[in-house]
């Protein structure tokens, strides 16, 4: 009986794993249709846009642990007394990041 139970748990875990992967893949590959420009300077038209996944709850390190160059650009913010810096080198990869500082859900954009 115990074996059956653990088998059921394993199958459930495997299935939820499949479901999570499918959801993650859906996000990576999804498209959204909207009246926008397909390229800079282009006309506003019906476009099937590719949508790419942006980071959620990114990892952060201390200033001493960071390996940035002094003259590179960051987007900084102090919220609820907590300073945080988003290096433009990362924001430029994703355009947007989903973070949370204290109780505030934040979306730094570039």
């Amino acid at each position: 009986m115990r074996k059956l139970c653990s088998l059921a748990v394993l199958i459930a875990l495997a299935l939820s794993g499949v479901a999570m992967n499918a959801a993650a893949q859906d996000r990576q590959q999804r498209t959204v249709r909207a009246r926008v420009q397909a390229h800079p300077g282009g006309p506003v038209e019906d476009v099937e846009m590719e949508v790419h996944e942006a980071p959620v709850d990114p990892k952060t390190v201390t200033a001493d642990e960071a390996t940035l160059e002094d003259d590179e650009l960051v987007l900084g913010l102090v919220i609820e007394g907590e300073p945080i810096a988003y290096p433009i080198r990362y924001l430029a990869m994703y355009e947007v990041v989903n973070d949370r500082v204290g109780d505030t859900p934040l979306a730094p954009t570039w």
Partner: peptide, 17 residues
Amino acid sequence: HPDTRVMVVEGRDGRPY
């Protein structure tokens, strides 16, 4: 802000801007 936190992306350094 000497006590600042800094976002990192593991496995992708990008290029300094």
